[in-house]
Design a protein around this nucleic acid. Structure first.
Lengths: 197, 197
DNA sequence: CCTACCGATCGGTAGG
DNA sequence: CCTACCGATCGGTAGG
């Protein structure tokens, strides 16, 4: 009978390897060596290599959704919600750097059916951001000449974080979110400082 | 003797496949079938599969560098240069969607020595953007409380375009660049409209 | 979770 | 550019 947490350990190791070498660039034997379980024995814990990719990717999607949902549903001024959303997004990335990277980078390697599941969750996440921006516009906080461009710019900037954020860097997730919010709200022409958000 | 353009044709096909399935997810036989050349015969044109990845990636890097260089070197107000830089960046992506995607997505699959070459060109590109922003700050056009965060936000947004830009979409590269510039300069609080840039 | 293994496929080559 | 092929490795399984 499998020791408790063994499967979690395999998922963590797979996340790390998929992040570094990609899904197709990682072999079952790589995972075997890194986990100290012979490759054939891995199949006592998993059904297939793709199962690992799906589970990592799907958990990642859920983390993003679950952390953004209360922000979008909650109240407060749009500026505050924007910052909270960015904090939530960055927190998911910084707390799950491997899984988040695999989520962004490798989900297209899933086969049809499972890729569609992830695609659905990505769409849901994107539409939550769209709602947040639309609300800001309705309330007069944001003036967006083109909401779609604004959404794409913000999401690209937020999604790109997994490529450069280092937990050991000088800025905390909250500080990065604060600076991004400042630039996004006021632009390069004149950032506001010392906002009490 | 190889027909003229045969090698180019192979590179184009490889770009398309690497974009869709990733480098490790694409086999020599995939390229063989798509190009109508038997897999063994491909090696009359290339030395290795990795050669293809490197050539695609390196050409992509050069396209980005060569299109940004005249903008950074040239004169004009920082706002105009920012927009020109975004136009140049988007143009490279839209005119070379496959190669640009491979450049962003697959360069880490290169082996040590060649990955370092690409890394160097990426650093060079990033530092050109840094110079552009620093110049804007020196001239009083931009007020950046944190230049590094600003650079990362802008580059992430610009780099993310390969993931969503569709040539057949409603916005031309210039129009996307204009909207991005507007948001980046003035922020969501108040975009300027009808600027004569 | 191990031993022992399988058929399929991989990138690449020899000889024309 | 084709024919014919190679050794290595792949994801996965049978039987304990």
């Amino acid at each position: 009978m499998p020791r408790t947490g063994r499967r979690e350990q395999i998922l963590e190791i797979a996340s790390r390897l998929f992040r570094r070498k990609g899904y197709h660039g990682t072999t079952i034997r790589d995972i075997s060596e890194a986990s100290g379980i012979l490759s054939g024995s891995l199949y006592a814990h998993i059904r297939s290599k793709e199962d690992l990719l799906f589970e990592i990717t799907d958990r990642g999607a859920e983390l993003f959704l679950q952390s953004l949902r209360p922000v979008v549903m909650g109240g407060g001024p749009p500026e505050v919600k924007l910052k909270k959303a960015l904090v939530a997004h960055i927190r998911v990335i910084t707390d799950n750097l491997e899984a988040a990277t695999v989520f962004f980078h490798e989900w297209k390697s899933l086969t049809e059916e499972r890729r569609r599941i992830i695609q659905g969750k990505r769409d849901e996440y994107e539409s939550m951001w769209a709602r947040l921006l639309a609300e800001g516009e309705e309330q007069g906080s944001f003036r967006l000449s083109d909401p779609k461009s604004a959404r794409l710019l913000i999401l690209s900037a937020a999604n790109g974080m997994y490529q450069w954020y280092r937990p050991e860097g000088e800025l905390s997730p909250e500080e990065v979110a604060e600076r991004f919010t400042s630039i996004l709200l006021s632009g390069l022409h004149g950032e506001e400082r010392g906002e009490t958000m």
